[in-house]
Design a protein around this nucleic acid. Sequence first.
DNA 1: AGCCTGGAACGAACT
DNA 2: AAAGTTCGTTCCAGG
Length: 823
Amino acid sequence: MPSTSFPVLSKFPLGPPAAVCGSGESLGPAPPSGGSMKSAEEEHYSYAPSSISSVLPPGPAHPSLPAPCHDLQTSGPGMPAPAASQPPGYGGAVDTGPSSYFLSSGHIRPNGAPALESPRIEITSYLGMHHSNSQFFHDVEVEDVLPSSKRPPSTATLNLPNLEAYRDPSCLSPASSLSSRSCNSEASSYESNFSYPYASPQTSPWQSPCVSPKTTDPEEAFPRGLGACGLLSSPRHSPSTSPRTSVTEESWLGARTSRPSSPCNKRKYGLNGRQLSCSPHHSPTPSPHSSPRVSITDDTWLGNSTQYTSSAIVAAINALTTDNSLELDGVPVKARKTAPDHCPSVALKVEPAGEDLGTTPPTAEFLPEEFTSFQHIRKGAFCDQYLSVPQHPYQWARPRSPTSFASPSLPALDWQLPSRSGPYELRIEVQPKPHHRAHYETEGSRGAVKASAGGHPSVQLHGYLENEPLTLQLFIGTADDRLLRPHAFYQVHRITGKTVSTTSHEAILSNTKVLEIPLLPENNMRAIVDCAGILKLRNSDIELRKGETDIGRKNTRVRLVFRVHIPQPNGRTLSLQVASNPIECSQRSAQELPLVEKQSAASCPVLGGKKMVLSGHNFLQDSKVIFVEKAPDGHHIWETEAKLDRDLCKPNSLVLEIPPFRNQRITSPVQVSFYVCNGKRKRSQYQHFTYLPANAPTIKTEPTDDYEPALPCGPASQGLSPLPKSCYSQQLAMPPDPGSCLVPGFPPCPQRSTVVSLPPSAGPKMHDLSSTTYSKGMASPGHGHLGLQRPAGGLLAAQETPTPAGVHAGPPQQPPPALLRPQ
DNA sequence: AGCCTGGAACGAACT
DNA sequence: AAAGTTCGTTCCAGG
């Protein structure tokens, strides 16, 4: 079994990446651990930046960048993550995307995935596995899309060697955890599958592992996406499987007892360490994965997985050869770690991506697909490990909307996709509440995610005039600074019952549970999501996973990620994705941490003095608003507390006076951040804010929202759309209000980019990629970031680029790389 | 009897 | 190394 490989993988995590990266080495290897480890908090907040930036490629903050896409990153980099976060990169999600498109995308993946995953290892494994399985897809798909050239089947081998190297056990260290990304991988794999033709290959890798065993079936394809990897990863999936399983937990099992354990399990994040020892305990607990239940339960498990492979392999190989990949991997790792989600992988990827990007040059070479595949592969490896586990071959009937899944190569879940492309736009009409207490497996369901105003979130696909129903996919994604990816510690949970009016179907992709909801023409392609709850997996269980690098502690924010795959006349599939505003899933955090949902101003002249209104939750009479300017390395260059109008402060709103900037002579916009602080460790996420030269024309923000700000600071600030929370760091997360982000964007961009510290390479690549595709977007939006974040809003509109979806990085978070870059 | 929820206890992980 | 704090996870209890 793959298992063999697994072992290796596990090792990799740490080491491999670095190794792989080669370049990355520097990056990588280690860092991950350290840096990454930081508590989630840090990440959330800020620091990340520094650490991140420095260490990680993308840096948490900009997670977005990362991976996904080079593109994104590219863009991203600069970008503040925020925008980036989303989709960016890849925009094109479309499978088909023009190759160029893909390329970029590919890059993207690379990003994300790539690095992280310790890929190498996995790769190896994949190879074996994959080939068999995946290949189908790959081949098929690939052929379609790709030029033959790309595919190099041979891949496998070559890489392996390297891989091995990577694998060194030694590597394992914490970093390894990072590697965990496997999760990501999963996702990614999944994605990969779908996404591109190539993807398939890519995908395959991951899945393949799983897949193969499970299924080779074509159908899987669909599932595969889902299931395949996921299965693998499945640790979750299968109940037992769950990670821990993999861990061998069984052995461990004994450990747990009544309470799972967190205790035991808990490891210190800081270190890297997850200590194995602990893990055992944890593992015992079965749940870890709850996921298992998740996936398993339902139906889903497909086994599918399958597929990927060759192409993936090839890609991987290429990547390796290029080194790029390697680099990426290495570095990112840590950064990624942070990201917790299931898919830690994602994180990994991302970062890597970033790095990769840098490296990328190669990317250019690669087809996106390849990239992806590559990444996937890695992931796959992880998966495999997990895979071993369970797998049920589930098969569910596919949803009505076959289309979506139909394509074998749907983009991996960690790919960044645009929310709109051409005439189509996937938009969240009603956002979910910012707080939703997730339930543990040991608890009963805590119900479906609701909307702030009552009712439930709703999503609509605009511009689709066909009569064929489609499938809306929903999964739980991360909400940190890094690129959007499946969350390793949370899974979507299907809610059924009298109160649920929306039919849904569960599928598992790469360890990520995906809820499929029909989008019917008769409903104007709109779906009310009243069937989606959120399941919390025990940190210990997930962290034990082989590839997982993210830590669960304080990684309690998620986003609902919606995807739709639209069949195109040319046989290709256009994939769009949009992520909701961040949702705090921790009981405690939801009750204590201040949350900024909107800010009335995004920018203001250096003189300050203007008022800004923040709306959100958990504001206290003694809350403080701290403005911070960070250096590229994350260090705080300047920090000052804004004056609050206490009389106007309410639990849901704060009115403050924007403090003057430290340097009144700036000649170009300077991006800073601010956060609300209720106490030592009770801080909101960083919000972006931009200081404008005193005499500079104001920048108009686009207020996406309606928010009315009363105060816009100077001209610029008007818009108020609240920025996403962390533009900076988390920005990504916030797709919703993208608008806000936009604003900040400008200034930020420059800085950010630096901050982000993208790898040089990334830049270039990005451009290439993007150039083609994104160009428009950039232009109009002007601010890539903005565009990115915004879900669909104005910016997007601006983007009207004809280009395919891909192009548009649209999606909320991700900005097209291009945009970023430029700046 | 069972599902939801809100609260909070328990104990490990962090500071 | 010890003490206090922070959090994750499990339990309880009421609706």
